[in-house]
Simulated scan of single mutants.
Amino acid sequence: MIANKIRVLIVDDSAVIRKIITKSLKSSDQIEVVGYAVDGEEAANSVDLLVPDVVILDTEMPKINGIQALKKIRENHPDLPIIVFGSHAHSDSEAAVEAYSVGASDCVAKPDHANISISELSRVIEGELISKIIKHAGQRVFRKQLNLRKASSNTQLDVALNSENQNERTYLEHLSGVRAICIGSSTGGPMALIELLKQVRPTLNIPIFIVQHMPEGFTTSLATRLDAISNAEVKEAEHGEIAIPGKIYIARGGLHMTLIKVGEDVAIHLNSKAPENNCRPSVDVLFRSASQVYGSAVLAIILTGMGSDGLHGCHVIAEKKGLIFVQDEQSSVVWGMPGSVSNAGLASKVMSINGIAEQINLCKLDLA
């Protein structure tokens, strides 16, 4: 029935492209095209009028472009799946990283306009775009079913550590004893990571492990971009490599990242096991393995993102008496992942990106 179909809004200034997308989407009985927009300004208005479940957004358009439209839509629709479908949305492009930074749920590269053919465009739509539409629409339904309660008005204040932790050691002593930092992020994460890592002190002699929700290939560009602004080396994680203090490792798109104890060292393992929370890499997978390796000496950080990936992992880290920082709602593009952890009462502190950076810089400091 139409009422059960995924409502899709197509935003593209080319009438030919819109027609091909519409025709190709009809190959799926789960999808219904509910409208079109020809530029970014019209897109923002159409979202309010048509209430789509998913938006397909081109990046090159008149008036305001796709990136500007994405920012505008995100202001009022933080959990709406928006898939960028543009000729510059391939995995090694700065445009794709920028799109993820400002809130894209996913990116699919459109064949080059200069040599585009109907058959090639249809192949990409039916082979890649449709599956991503169904995936992200399904995640949105799941998030609504969670019915997470709204955070209280003091979410930007420090959340007290549990009494058992306070009796064991002071907060600063705990922070100075951190031996690894694990970060999870999704929608809006790349920009949050940029703001965070450029503030982290160069003498922080502990490894940082990052799971950013991105498809295969896109994390290469992200690692390069973060390496350029960070005081520490940032790289995509490689299977079997030993984690070196002071380096920053990003999980490869499409692969889970786990940490394994090897003698006195910690090795990074990558695997293609089933997605968790519809995500691979999954924050939960990283956090669980980190808690087994580092125990109470792990600091988990949840940044902006849709859904609740990382919530279960934070439960495990809290049980091990590790520290958990959460990005506050005001500075998050989407307060789904951080909100779920905060609302569960697991956060040691709820802060802005600047606040989190200040706390990270207290790790491994000599308090004597």
Rank of each mutant, 00 (worst) to 15 (best):
Y36W: 06
E98A: 12
K5W: 01
H90G: 13
N278G: 05
I83E: 06
A223C: 11
E216F: 03
G188Q: 07
V266M: 03
L196V: 02
M1K: 08
T170V: 08
A347H: 06
I183A: 05
I317C: 01
L193V: 10
K198Y: 01
E94M: 11
I82V: 15
A274I: 12
A104C: 08
L129Q: 07
G310M: 04
I134R: 07
V211P: 05
L222Q: 02
N354A: 13
R169A: 15
D227Q: 01
S340K: 08
A368T: 10
S331N: 13
M61S: 03
V84K: 01
D265M: 09
M214Q: 09
G66H: 05
E264Q: 12
A114N: 10
A347I: 09
E236C: 14
I248N: 03
A37S: 15
V333S: 03
A99Y: 05
I2E: 12
I301C: 07
V108Q: 04
E60W: 02
E120L: 09
N154H: 06
R149D: 09
C314W: 05
D92G: 08
S105N: 14
A357E: 00
E216R: 08
E60F: 06
L49H: 05
A104N: 09
A95V: 15
S272K: 14
I206K: 07
R280D: 06
S332T: 08
R201S: 12
C279I: 01
G253V: 03
L148P: 03
Y249K: 02
R74T: 14
P281M: 03
S119P: 00
P111D: 11
V84W: 01
K247C: 12
A137E: 05
A109C: 13
S101R: 01
N115Y: 13
A180D: 00
G246Q: 08
S152A: 12
S352C: 06
F85D: 02
I206W: 02
D158A: 15
L193T: 11
P202M: 05
I20L: 11
Y294P: 08
A3L: 13
E329V: 06
V102S: 05
S185Q: 04
G313E: 01
I67C: 00
A15C: 06
Q156F: 09
R252I: 10
P281Q: 03
V54C: 03
V200M: 11
V334D: 01
A44D: 02
I210G: 03
K364S: 14
P78D: 09
A318Y: 02
S352E: 06
L286K: 03
V141R: 15
S91C: 04
I133A: 05
L303P: 08
S296C: 07
I360R: 00
A160K: 15
T22G: 03
P78C: 04
G305I: 12
A300Q: 01
Y171T: 10
M61T: 07
I17F: 11
R252N: 10
L365I: 13
L255W: 12
C363I: 02
A267I: 06
L197V: 00
E164T: 15
L148I: 15
D53V: 07
A99L: 07
L172K: 10
R18V: 09
A69D: 00
T155W: 04
Y249L: 07
L49A: 10
H113R: 12
N343E: 15
Q199M: 12
I301F: 06
D265T: 14
I268W: 04
